[in-house]
Each structure stands twice: as C-alpha cells, then as structure tokens.
C-alpha cells in the first residue's frame, strides 16, 4: 500500500519527521512524499537511505517534488 505524505510548505525538520513517523508505523511499504524545496527533497532522501529505504523515483512537477520511497 502506498502512503502519501504531504509535506509541502513545511520546512526542516518537519518533512523528515513526518516521513520517519510513517515508516515506523507498520503496514505501508511504499511512500509518496510531496515536498516543495530542494533542501527538503535532499533531507527526506538522506533520511530514507539512512533507514534502509530506497528512493526509487523523484518527479518534479512545477515547484514540487514527488518522491517515491520503498521500504
């Protein structure tokens, strides 16, 4: 199941906190994280890698980034 995390408009460390919270809760194995700054994109990617998750796709749409992360 894919869980969507909308962290648009939020700055560090909120997007990472929201992502880690979601990873902790059982059930979901795929996450779609929406962020709108490059710093948040990098931070969430880094956090994902440190939790042994894989960032499988980063799509840019307008001013936003959609990260697909698999646990």
């Amino acid at each position: 199941m894919t869980k969507t995390i909308d962290a648009r408009g939020l700055s560090c460390p909120q997007p990472v906190l929201m992502f880690l919270e979601a990873v902790k809760s059982a059930g979901d194995t795929e996450f779609e994280v929406l962020v709108d700054t490059e710093a948040s994109k990098e931070n969430v990617s880094r956090a994902a890698e440190s939790r042994n998750c894989q960032v499988t796709d980063i799509r840019e749409s307008g001013d936003e980034y959609h990260l697909t992360i698999v646990k």
């Binding site: 560090c12 460390p13 990472v16 906190l17 710093a39 990098e42 880094r46 956090a47 440190s50």
Partner: peptide, 19 residues
C-alpha cells in the same frame, strides 16, 4: 549545502544523523 550549526546538533539529537 544547507550549512546550519543548529541543524547539525538537532539532526544528531533527533535523527542520529551526522551529515
């Protein structure tokens, strides 16, 4: 690089991240 001194300690305390 997003260099930030506060962030460095915060990330260490909050996420155990050393970047």
């Amino acid at each position: 690089s997003r260099f930030c001194t506060m962030g460095s300690f915060r990330d260490l305390l909050l996420f155990r991240q050393v970047h």
